[in-house]
């Protein structure tokens, strides 16, 4: 790529740079993207082989969305039916459900969004984490009925078209998962956590809570405490922390593969 080849960035691209390389954003906006920016972006986003892999992975391994979307198929026997209108991943959705139905079951069974997972159904694992009105919550302990008028973002809504969210890229690069079942919850939780840090939220390991509140730079220990509501039985914790730290700090976190 030539120096300052493309001064015009789309909104998506700006967002990507803003998320991944905030420290370079002003320069990019003024002078455009240069080779150094590009290389840095590639490192942050997981590197060359990624592009090649995405192609295979996309077509081979993902779930085919069913043609028979059950969304509007309402069993006649529904009791205490509630009609809910809300926004899911940017789209307006309206559905009629049993008042007992959780947001998690609604996403999975009615809206064909099976990315959010049911690990425990009791608020004890975090696999069902989604982002409602900008904050991370557990969809298994949320009644769908209570979501009327709210915006819901799930793992399916994080990527922009074919471009992964920086957090998804970082999880890939750092192998922040094994079986992958806790992953949608981990990623949604991590994405919202970065926002909480920007707002200056504290945690139990923060120490002195009294100084004025402002954006905080999270240590690995802070990330661990703040992510503790997301259990990973495969034990991908160190890799998840590395992925989050990379996106949070905007600095590439080294991967070490040691052998002697």
């Amino acid at each position: 790529m030539d120096e300052h080849e493309s001064p015009e960035l789309t909104e998506d691209e700006k967002q990507l740079f803003a998320d991944l390389m905030p420290e370079d954003l002003t320069e990019i906006m003024d002078k455009g993207v240069n080779r150094r920016h590009f290389l840095k972006l590639m490192t942050l986003a997981g590197g060359g082989i990624l592009a090649a892999q995405s192609a295979v992975a996309e077509q081979v391994l993902t779930r085919s969305s069913s043609e028979t979307l059950p969304t509007e198929l309402v069993p006649d026997s529904l009791e205490n039916a509630v009609t809910v209108a809300c926004k899911v991943n940017g789209k307006a959705r309206t559905f009629t459900i049993d008042s007992r139905m959780t947001l998690l079951d609604t996403l999975r069974e009615r809206l064909d969004l099976t990315g959010s997972k049911k690990g425990c159904d009791h608020g004890q694992c975090g696999a069902c984490t989604v982002i409602v009105n900008g904050s991370r919550v557990l969809s298994c302990l949320t009644l769908a009925a209570s979501c009327a008028g709210k915006t819901v973002q799930t793992i399916e809504g994080l990527a922009q078209g074919n471009r992964l969210h920086p957090m998804q890229e970082a999880f890939l690069k750092h192998d922040g998962f094994q079986c992958g079942f806790c992953t949608p919850g981990q990623i949604c939780s991590a994405v919202a956590l970065l926002d909480e840090a920007k707002k200056g939220h504290a945690s139990y390991v923060t120490g002195n809570l009294r100084p004025p509140v402002g954006p905080v730079k999270l240590s690995n220990e802070e990330i661990r405490e703040r992510m503790s509501g997301n259990i990973c039985r495969c034990g991908a914790y160190p890799n998840i922390v590395a992925a989050i730290q990379e996106v949070h700090s905007g600095q590439s976190v080294e991967q070490v593969f040691r052998s002697v």
Binding site: A57, T62, R63, I155, K173, D175, G180
Partner: peptide, 15 residues
């Protein structure tokens, strides 16, 4: 190399 099934997993599309 990154996991081949990684994209499916980080996007919630792995069934």
């Amino acid at each position: 190399i990154n996991r081949i099934d990684g994209i499916a997993k980080v996007t919630g599309k792995a069934p």
